[in-house]
């Protein structure tokens, strides 16, 4: 009884907030409604007994994706009213075609029925004696390992794409070069500094400037040459 009630509550709020995502005028509000929708979906998952999915949904979608959306929306300051202007021109025909498609999809829905196996599948959400996460893991990493790896490549390509299209190496920027730092020897020393002593007492230690270092190196090499 309680489960049924909460299901309808979650579902109703989910649909209502989804509608608000599309209709609200302020993009920030849209994103906030999206977050609400995610929470409700997580609730639905919980009711269905998929607690792992519910948590993932909250962590990934609310914690990361939606917040990223918020950032983007706030940073870009998109004028949605202006975007809609172009949309208005097509609205009448668009509405007609949309309506036709919608009616057809409803007709399709009318013919829908459960597959014979669906009922059995629903009663056994996962093999008994296995936790939620482990069941997911089996599906992801064993049954669908091929697709899982392929998805990984899709994400890799997305990352490469983002870098290719946006990363610019500007001249004059100073970037950290870890290899150089690690390989540096002799120019940085660790000193134990007496307690209570200020800069006045111990002085400022500076790395030797390259101009000073150059001749030294040359001399050093000469020395070697002499020995051989």
């Amino acid at each position: 009884m309680i489960a049924a009630l909460s299901f309808y509550a979650f579902a109703a709020i989910l649909i209502a907030s989804a509608v608000m995502v599309v209709t609200s005028r302020n993009p920030v509000h849209s994103v906030l409604f999206l977050i609400l929708a995610f929470f409700n979906a997580a609730g639905l998952f919980l009711i269905a007994g998929a607690e792992f999915l519910a948590m993932i949904l909250v962590i990934v979608y609310v914690g990361a994706v939606a917040v990223l959306f918020l950032f983007v929306v706030m940073m870009l300051d998109i004028d949605f009213a202006q975007l809609r202007e172009g949309f208005q021109r097509y609205a009448p025909i668009g509405a007609v075609i949309g309506a036709i498609l919608l009616i057809e999809l409803f007709m399709v829905l009318a013919t829908w029925r459960f597959a014979p196996e669906a009922a059995t599948l629903r009663l056994n959400p996962m093999p008994s004696g296995v936790t939620n996460a482990e069941a997911l893991g089996r599906i992801l990493y064993t049954d669908n390992v091929f697709l899982f790896q392929a998805c990984g490549l899709v994400l890799l390509v997305a990352m490469i794409g983002a870098i290719v299209l946006t990363l610019r190496e500007r001249p004059g920027t100073r970037r950290q070069s870890i290899a150089e730092q690690v390989a540096r020897a002799g120019t940085v020393s660790v000193r134990s500094v007496p307690l209570g002593a200020g800069l006045k007492e111990i002085g400022i230690a500076r790395p030797p400037s390259p101009e000073e270092e150059e001749p030294k190196q040359v001399e050093h090499h000469h020395g070697h040459g002499g020995h051989h």
Partner: peptide
């Protein structure tokens, strides 16, 4: 497969 192709092509 299609998505892997498409994403690369967009870029």
């Amino acid at each position: 497969g299609l998505e892997l192709l498409s994403l690369s092509l967009y870029v």
